[in-house]
Structures are given as C-alpha cells and as structure tokens.
Amino acid sequence: MMRYFKLVNFELGRFFKLYGVIIGITILSQLVGLWVVSNSYMERANYAMFEENLSPAQFVSDNGEMSLLVLTRTLWFLGPIALGAIALLFNIFFVWYRDWFGKNTFIYRLLMLPTARINVYLAKATSILLMVLGLVAIQIVLLPVESVLLKWLVTRDFRLDLAPAEVVSGFRELMIILPAGIIDFILAYGAGIMVIFILFTAILFERSYRIKGIVFGAIYVALATGIFLSPIILEGIIGTNYLYPMELLVLEIILGLIVSAASIWVANYLLTKRITV
C-alpha cells in the first residue's frame, strides 16, 4: 500500500513541471482576462454616460451587468481550461509510452519493483485523476479571488456579484467540470475513472502484443463500451424504455463498476503474464 502511495507521488512529480505551467497559465490568463474584460466594459460604460448621457441604470439595462459570467464566456477563461483538459487527456497515453520510449527504459525499473505491478497501473490512473481534481480545485479557488478583483475593477452600479456556485450554474459549459450536485460529481468523475481504466488496459494490450495488440485494444474498448452501454443499446433496439430512469442509473453504476473491475483484472493479467519491454 505504501509503495502505491509512493508511486502516486512519484508519477505526480514526473508531470509536475508541466502541470505547474498549466496552473500558471490558468491563473494568469483568467486574471489578465478579467482585467481586460472589466476595463473594456467600464470604458464602454463611461463613454455611454459622458458622451450619450445615459445613466448607469440605463446602460446596465441595455448591456447587462458586468459579472464573472461575462469573463467565463471569453477565451481568457475557456482557453486554459481546454488546455488543461487536452494536456491531461494526452497524459493518459504519455504516462505509459514515455516509459518505453526515449533514451531511458524506465519501464524495466517499474516492472522490476518489488511490488505488485498493478500498483503501477493504479498509481498512474490515480495521478491523472488527482491532477484533474487539482485543476478543478484551482478553478474553484480562483472564482472568489476573481470576485474580489472584480470589485476593484468595476463600480457597484455596474456589477453583479455572484457566488462561485452561481457562476458555475450560470454557465453550462462549466458544469461539465463541476456538475450541479455532489452525487453528479461522483457519477461524472466515476465515469471518467472508468474511461481511464479502459484506455489504460487498451494501451497495455498494445504494449503486450504490439501490432496485434492495437486490434485487441480496440476490441477491448469496443467490448467495454458495449457492455457499459448495453442497457441503453438494448432498449434502443427493442424500442421501449423497459427500465425507469432511476433503475437504468443504478444498472449503469453496477455495469460501470463491473467494467472498471474487469479492466483492472485484465490489466493485472497483462502486466504479470503478457507484458513485454
């Protein structure tokens, strides 16, 4: 168990510099973005008031208030989130292949550690999950900071102050990373973990059987997806919704757990019996 935690910490360390850069870009881009967006709003407001003699209330009624939601709809805000998502998605593959390729052959070391090899697999998955959650956390912490900054940049008359949760629910796309309720959060990220397990196992198929392994990996992904979605596919074929939505959800949770467990089991077999350096 301790070796698993050590491995998680180690895997985090290997991506940490790049991770730090992504966090830095996120913070910088959002704060600079807020400054730019707020200033351009205030410029327009001032112009309207002094040149067109509009009252603040009239301007707000025509243009809407300035709030963090205005920022969320800009590339300043969305760009870094997309960057983080792409980097971590890419990392699902990178986290394995960098150990095989390049000058070093670190995979020898990992596979020769006096610990169950599945720990390496679980540690790599955990590190990705933690980095995703870390980015989400940074975003949550950033929102109130931006709220304070907004108070400095925009005067009371033009401002709509929103709590972090309100910013998220006011902007649907943000709800992808922060679903509405804690149960939704667990479901969404649980599904995400399942996807990581499926992809990891597919990668190990490729690493075990090489060219043939690509085919096996693809078949595995199709099979896992098929099993997970089987109730929905089946109902689609039959054309009736035999299960009530809640029942379907419970069934999907069970299938998700089965598919995840199967992925770990298959990966364990591949790592101990079939893997090749």
Binding site: F5, N9, G134, V136, A137, F185
Partner: peptide
C-alpha cells in the same frame, strides 16, 4: 510526499467547500 498531499488536500477542501 508533499505533491501527493498538497494536491489531495487542495482538491478535497476546494471541491468539498464548493458543494
């Protein structure tokens, strides 16, 4: 293990507080 501990702590605290 500060990397592991700090990410886990920040994630749990921030996401927990949010919800």
């Amino acid at each position: 293990y500060w990397k592991l501990l700090s990410i886990t702590t920040i994630a749990v605290l921030a996401i927990g507080t949010f919800y």
